[in-house]
Design a protein around this nucleic acid. Structure first.
Lengths: 234, 234
DNA sequence: CGCTTTCTTGATCACGGTCAACATCAGTGG
DNA sequence: CCACTGATGTTGACCGTGATCAAGAAAGCG
């Protein structure tokens, strides 16, 4: 009993490859995408080492991507929200190099790479480039965040970046979802969970944010930006 | 007086989109690529804010990509060697978000995005995906390197990664080129140049590497890997 | 209502940032 | 060719931030 996978009924169609397409083209697009069953928290969309059967676009919920860091540990490369792409790296050698795990009840659409020429004829070429470029930018931005010194700066940078992504989805920029565990987030930001916890506490006490378990509310977005960009004083 | 830009005579054609192509297809490929004039150290291939006229593939030499980190400073996102791609992020909104600077006398080929369908018909589709995926992987790998604690670990990780890239180019994995300044490298690795300098010194004293100004020789690749992956003791 | 998992808070210490002096190199002109 | 100069890289001393170890609080789950 699959939920209708049709692009016409998809809430994410304006962020995905279907951006700017008419109903006819959306129908054709549906034929090129393979929507997943709803996945539960903790389930794998794909695993490192699996043969890559295409790339994915998140439809609902959220995923994290993780890689083995070579010493038994894992590193959380990124979090992926609706309209964002996964598994590009796997297209390099035909096998996934990272694993994708659902953080919530989530769905994602698979885009088999052999259908790219077909997708192009539907007029989705620019959208595809947009999504690829977007991922590249996100990745670059996160590198900048990680390289910046000061743990507080990194946390603030992450939150600001998250707000931007929520805006792109047409969602409120004040209520930032944190579907991942503190451990995952700390790992992603290159710090310990104790440190992250302290910073959330400090920011909350300062009135900049309100930190819940699965979300953060930006009470003072301006000061948050200030913290992120180091020009901070207020 | 342009150096012959023809793909047939390009030393990098086996790493680029031309991988696996016959002479006829290479000729056609040449028609889709716009090779740059040889560029001097310090020259910009493109600048953040410029209208994106496609993406680029390094032909010879090396480039760095930098972004403004929001507080007047710059962050070095990555270094790019022959056969590697640049400027994917710019395809997202039509404007480059980073700037690319030559680190040496270098050349790069521009690939106008409107020629992608044409490129596909030449059979370069898989190569294109390979290059895009490769960049994604490099980026993810660097994130893992940055997030890892321990400055020495990060430096070792970078060198190991660099060796892999040299191998892909068919070059020796012991002599690792460092065309960038210490400042740029330290910035890229999220540490101060003093710290980087100390680590190079320490590693040299330990006999693991020999550090020159514009290259490093991996004297004991095994111990270097051990340092990178934290299982280090030797 | 226990039990486990996840998160918060506290105390200590090392790593790396910062400031400062020095060394080395590249480029220029005497 | 060598002296001069500015840029680049190395080494040293001090100190603050965040990792580590450890205990306690809160939430999820049978």
């Amino acid at each position: 009993m699959r939920t209708s996978g049709h692009c016409r009924e998809c809430a994410t169609r304006r962020l995905c490859l279907g951006a700017g397409l008419g109903d006819d083209s959306l129908d054709a697009l549906s034929g090129c995408m393979t929507p997943s069953e709803p996945m539960q928290r903790g389930q794998y969309l794909y695993r490192a080492g699996d043969a890559a059967a295409g790339c994915y676009i998140v439809r609902s919920g959220a995923y994290k991507t993780v890689v083995n860091d070579g010493q038994g540990g894992e590193h959380v490369i990124g979090f992926h929200f609706p309209g964002e792409m996964l598994a590009l790296g796997g297209q390099s050698e035909g096998r996934h190099t990272d694993s994708a795990v659902a953080l919530d009840t989530s769905t994602a659409c698979r885009v088999p790479m052999e259908r790219l020429p077909r997708l192009w004829t539907l007029g989705t070429g620019p959208s595809l480039l947009r999504l690829i470029g977007q991922q590249d930018q996100l990745s670059a931005q996160h590198q900048t965040t990680l390289a910046r010194s000061g743990a507080e700066t990194r946390v603030a940078g992450f939150l600001v970046s998250l707000a931007t992504r929520m805006e792109r989805q047409g969602r409120a920029t004040e209520r930032l979802p944190l579907p991942m565990s503190r451990t995952d987030l700390a790992n992603h930001l290159g710090m310990t969970l104790e440190c992250l916890s302290r910073i959330f506490g400090r920011m909350t006490r300062a009135g900049v944010i309100t930190a819940g378990r699965h979300h953060v509310i930006a009470q003072q977005p301006e000061r948050l930006r200030a913290l992120a960009f180091g020009t901070a004083d207020a």
